[in-house]
Amino acid sequence: MVLLVTSDNEQFQTEKDIVERSVLIKNMLEDVGESDQPIPLPNVSSSVLKKVTQPSTGPTEIDVRGRYLSTASTTVESPSRPPILEQSQDETRKRTTDISEWDQKFITVDQEMLFEIILAANYLDIKSLLCRRWLQDGSQHDQGARPPEEIRKLFNIVNDFTPEEEAQIKKENEWAEDR
């Protein structure tokens, strides 16, 4: 067992083989060696760490998009292992097309939480990630990539293009438009 301490000073007992899938923690453990010392994670809050290490079972709490909740709760098999287990180090380089069920549930969190999770995942070096799904799948438009307007709304991005610039960019990129 490994003891993790989050930014809000909460302690977590976690299986070693689970946390070792985070490249950062694995390196830390190697540096420290066998020790009972807790590992500080000053960049990760307890709520985020829970999200990142806990096996997800049952329907997820907050549903932003509405549609995901049904997908997540109707699936029969629930993943018995947390996401970091599904991500081996060498896989992080490849573009993985297979988004785990865990990721599916993972994305049913609110915006601030998502933001923190992205940062935490980056900090812990776990790159399987959710963003891809947030940005692409599940758009109500043709189930393809989300159009820019929808991404702006979702992530509260301010459109700072002039209408001319926007039209120009749209025209230049027509070839990759997801029609």
């Binding site: 990630l129 963003c131 459109n159 960019i169």
Partner: peptide, 21 residues
């Protein structure tokens, strides 16, 4: 972090993100 995200999305996603701001 954004570059990591760009590495995870497909071409459609990159183009779409690039048109937001």
């Amino acid at each position: 972090v954004l570059l990591c995200i760009f590495a995870l999305v497909d071409v459609y996603g990159i183009i779409s993100l690039g048109q937001t701001c």
